[in-house]
Design a protein around this nucleic acid. Sequence first.
DNA 1: GAGTTTGAAACT
DNA 2: CAGTTTCAAACTC
Length: 904
Amino acid sequence: MMDSPEPSKNNNGSSSSASTLNNNNNNDDAPSSESPQVQESPFLRFVKTLSPIPTKASHMTQGCVGLSSPPLVFKSPRISHRETQLTKRPQGTQSFGGVIPQSVNEGNRLGEAPGDSRTSNSHQSLPERFINDTQQVFDFKNDENTQYYSSPSCIDKYLVDPGDIDQMYSADQDVQQQSTDAAETSLSDQTHSKNNILNFDRKDGPGDKVEESLPLSEDFNKVHLEKAAYGEEPEKMEGEKNDVEWSSQEPAKLESILAADGFDKRYSHGPLPQWMPNPLQDVKGCEDYNEMVPTSHVTAENILQDGSEATLKHHGIRRRCLQFGEAASNALGRNVKLNAASNTMITVKPSELVTSLCPRRGSGNFPSTSPKPSGIGLHLNSIINAIPIDQAATTGVRLSDSSQGMKSTSSIRLQRMENVKRSILSSNVDGRSLVDTRTESHEIDDTVATDTGNSEDLNQPPSPCKKKKKTSVTADDNGCKRCNCKKSKCLKLYCDCFAAGTYCTDPCACQGCLNRPEYVETVVETKQQIESRNPIAFAPKIVQPTTDISSHMDDENLTTPSSARHKRGCNCKRSMCLKKYCECYQANVGCSSGCRCEGCKNVHGKKEDYVAFGHTSSKERVSSIVEEGSDCTFHNKLEMVASKTVYDLHCLSPITPSLQCSDQGKEDAKSRVISGNYLPSPESDVNMLASCTNYTKSSENLHGSEALLDTNEMLGNTPYDSQIECSDAALLQLTPLPNPEQSGTSSFSSVPNECAKITHSRLSHGCIRQLPGGSLRWRSSPLTPSTRVGEAQYLQCSESDSKLFDILENETPDILKEASTPMTSVKVNSPTQKRVSPPQSCHIGIGSSSSGGLRSGRKFILKAVPTFPSLSPCINSKSNGDEDSCNSPSKSPLKANECPQRES
DNA sequence: GAGTTTGAAACT
DNA sequence: CAGTTTCAAACTC
């Protein structure tokens, strides 16, 4: 309910944003000089928006405004990494004024979009979005921002997506520019897609796919969401354009969803919705966004308009939602709302989006974005379904192909999309939804019917799984899985469907299945029981600590699960992680230190390599990314930023590293992780909140102790961003900061100041970054919000690079992720951790949290440099270069420590 | 399709 | 926390 109004607001905001957009457009045009980097335009827009927007952004905005000039600041709110991403680039560009070449994207966008207004709007919307988001974030920070962040999946997705999306957009734009036709088509596609989507939603709403799976715990919510998602999906199904668009859209959708979810759930207030709209407007830049948003809105609207349809749409999603418990929970609240009111536009949940996306992908036609497992937070199930790397690549191709005009672009987009999706979807998407959609079409109907009433109502409780015994294979052609449970009644994690938070569908060959909408209560209870035992049980198993996707999207794109990791890690002894027995392998992710596998030969990445290699690679990536600039996904950016920051820090001062060092209790990390995971997990939003609160607590603890991030899992598994955010939010809340918001604002406010202190900020950033884990902690711990901000500041201040700035925004999450990933060893972090008042707020600024922490009076633990010195390969991975130049041994040591630790 | 292998989940 | 059992998927034939 809350959301529904908000969305409208958002829409309204969009209008306002439109004005901003105009400005942005202008800005964009100017900066557009650098077509290659689309970002600038957005950035400029963003900046412009900021300046004007301030009013909007309550706390944050102000800070932002102040920052506006220092665009990045807002990033601090990471919240919207996506936003930030979108905004970031623009901001970065703006902040730097014409400096940033990122404008390329802008230029592309601006110039490209025949409907410049639209595109520009969309872009502009980004800034606005950003502002809004930031505002929202800040607003909610106190309460829900944390949550917002908390929802790891959402966050991650959001974060990831944005970057990717941005990139994609940029790429798309570029392509478009290259070929006006393509651009036109794209635009038209977008518009069409939007329209189509809307139409589809209305039309297809239920689509065949819908049925597939219902969210377990969140059944209702999920259902609703799913419905919405399905509505979208069908669209794709309907037309190739749609497909293409989808590819583009999906990311946007995902983002929107994520945003919606995160925002909705957390905020439910409306900021998100705004976001959504903005993105929609921005569509061009992010076609997906536009589409996504519109779609989401549409779906909601449609729903509103057509209750039945809406329901149907909602149904569509059902299957996914593992985490989605979160989504589900969120959805539940929201969905319920929808059901009740059917009003909430918001209802579209990220999970849904994801699901929808996935399904699309999964659905043959929508290869566009195959949800690759890589996605953070994905359940293995989803992952499994997720397209194999190879497939992913192919999918990208398909998409490109399918997307006629967009071809090359589309392919790129797709890839990026996929990457994003991975990250995003990972949590939510189940391959299933995609896969099953077709087969499940009929199921969908059933579910839809049920959904309409209520998820539960589903009058047609699908007969307990139709035993379509599809051989052993769990996955359908589409890649959707079906379970074949015989004894578990599909109420245990043995059941992929259940584990994924989805209902069993017809394709399932399960026996005595109780994982049906009919048995919602049972399902929910069971879920709760399981969660009581293991809160993370339904959390995505795969997390992307750092998805480099963006930067090297083309290269690795989906294929390389590089960053993604399995939370728990595998325990393979005979399969050598070369068979699907291995969850890591199954998810197309490399093994990490968290794995206890023996003789790991995981083609996606050996555990051993992971530790040593990953970091280095990340550095390299960073460098490359930096060079690449616009394209860098924010993960990459983050990495880069982190690496750079680290380097800078090292160079500038080894200071921060100590921060990282703070070994927050693993517990903290866990809690965080959990929060992230959990939050995302299927459980209700409440849970999310609770988790957030818990996290906050943990964060508090962290403050005290600066709990260390859990090394492996935290890093790899948990969606750092979300975690971090959560923690941050928590921190904010927990922290002395008068108000989280304040903290946020303060952070921002501080940010500007910090900007002045650029060097400091850098240092701090560097410190933060240095600590891959530490950085995370930073954020997670006290700094989180501020860190982001700080990062943004840093960027701004550093001016060094708008890119950096963007990256930073992106980074924060990435950093966190990275840090987290490697972090396992992080704990190791220098024993010499000392509590140090956070470096200047500025530094901390990086970690707004720090600033916040400072404000809060928190103490940051500084690790003794000595500890860092160890340059285990791990070290290299992340901080190498920086360290090298600078002494940042601290980092390296951490890494070194990290690496070993985990495995042990 | 049946049977075996495998590793996660669940249980003790 | 470790060990064992249960379970279902993955795999082989």
